[in-house]
Nucleic acid binder design. Structure first.
Lengths: 207, 207
DNA sequence: CGACAACATGACGCCCTGTCATTCTTTGTA
DNA sequence: TACAAAGAATGACAGGGCGTCATGTTGTCG
């Protein structure tokens, strides 16, 4: 009999955590295989072996699972972003590090999500704003604000700037994932230069 | 009895067009009022006074109506974009004109769609890629490619650039709509300068 | 061990979906 | 005008997913 029991190690707690994880994992698979629109709560719960009613002990709806998955991703990325800020000594450095980190993160996650789907199937793109994502946005905006305060960046509209930077990162990131091989460095170079110097600063293509 | 009858003026054709319009209009209202996720085909068709089965004579599903609405928007914007190209004499001019046109378009459409919703309701953002939207993207990319060919712009990755520009326009556009008063000129200035000159070129805030 | 609380279960009522036989309307023809 | 054939509208219906709830099961604590 061990005195060093795990803190939350009642049998009750254990299965609660395990079930929640099982549902989230099953949901990720099902969303990837069938597509978010088509997937049903029962598709998800069936894969776990649990009863249909049990699902509703953990999530209120299919939407909420999806949100939890998205939130999870954002929550995992936020400390990475924070580290970029802490280890950078200039605004330019922070920006590049953050974008590189995001693209690496994206390439990693991509493999987890990627599943072969019937080709040509139109997949409506679902985009939600979770609390964690909101926090990521705020963190970026605040980082910009701080840089502006300290004179590391010009005094511009930090709100617009954060929105624009995130937009560029997301869109260029998506495009990056469509190309083979996936080149996070090139994508980072493109996005960073665009933001820091605009069109004239972009890397030139070989003639 | 007029010889100059409207070309498609059979009674059949007329009601077909009218019904389609009625369904699209009802769908726009219902999506705005209830939100896309919650709205049902019957919510839409009920508002038209038609029978439920009739809906399926015009669209295969709720998704298809939504896509038709989105496609409609893109189709209306494309000629505007084309006009920007035709009347611009420089790359910079084209970019600014296109972005300004988009923001004006957005502000216009916004009023059509805007409906008061219970505050704090989380509205999952739905983003689809319709054929017309794909054409808009291609048009932008091709415009960039042409500008590059003619020496009006540096030889950069037009695909990434188009993606980045559209991303900036969309995101800054969204932010713009959240502010009061809606200032399309300021938003255009921000987005255009960011793309053309990057961070250093951005408009400065008043101290 | 007993009693309680927490959780799992799956049948059930509700509502939406998409179809289809039927009915009504329009069109073309004599 | 009368009539037949094609086109479109209708709403009842079967199928199925949703979320709930009474019931059964299992962990927890005195």
């Amino acid at each position: 009999m061990s005195h060093v029991a795990v803190l939350t190690s009642g049998k009750r707690e254990q299965t609660k955590v395990a079930n929640r994880r099982a549902i989230l994992d099953a949901a990720r698979e099902v969303f990837a295989e069938l597509g978010y629109e088509v997937a049903t709560v029962r598709d998800i719960i069936r894969r776990t072996g649990l009863a249909s009613g049990t699902f509703y002990n953990y999530f209120r709806s299919r939407e909420e699972v999806f949100e939890a998955l998205a939130d999870d991703g954002a929550a995992r990325f936020r400390p990475i972003l924070r580290a970029c800020w802490d280890t950078s000594d200039s605004f330019d450095g922070y920006l590049r590090a953050a974008i590189q980190a995001y693209f690496d993160f994206l390439a990693d996650e991509h493999q987890t999500w990627q599943v072969m789907r019937p080709a040509g199937e139109k997949q409506p793109h679902m985009r939600i704003q979770t609390p964690e994502m909101e926090r990521v946005f705020e963190e970026v905006r605040d980082a910009f604000s701080k840089a502006i305060e300290h004179g590391g960046a010009p005094r511009v509209d930090a709100d617009y700037l954060a929105a624009a930077c995130i937009a560029v990162a997301r869109q260029v990131g998506d495009k990056m994932l469509e190309r083979r091989p996936i080149d996070t460095v090139a994508a980072t170079d493109f996005a960073t230069r665009l933001i820091l110097g605009g069109l004239p600063a972009l890397p030139r293509l070989a003639t």
